[in-house]
Amino acid sequence: MSRHQSYPLFNLEQANVPDDLCPVATDISPMLPGDWRSQRPVVDRDKCVKCAVCWLYCPVQCVEEHAAWFDFNLNTCKGCGICATECPQRAITMIGEAQ
């Protein structure tokens, strides 16, 4: 596959297609599960070696690369804790959201 970016979603209105024929959805879901979290991952930037294991195993793929460390997009992070458990450097800690 040469292409790795999505094509723009179909637009019913532009195509002049009635919105009451076959049920279709043409807007991307705006839902963000960040508010499901009871715990959040916190990265120790000194320990992070950018091995990408957290990215590899993050179910929502919310890991973001920074200059010297990996961090998390908390809009979508559900707080499952896989990253903390799998991090070979023990660089990620889960802390309670209330704290």
Binding site: Y7, F10, V17, C22, V24, A25, T26
Partner: peptide
């Protein structure tokens, strides 16, 4: 298939869950 298509160049979800009580589901 002018009204609905499964075509990578025209991405859309065909037949998503529709309905339920409340929200815009019943009217949809």
């Amino acid at each position: 298939n002018w009204h609905v298509a499964l075509d990578p160049l025209k991405p859309m979800a065909v037949d998503p869950l529709t309905g339920g009580a409340g929200g815009k589901g019943p009217a949809t």
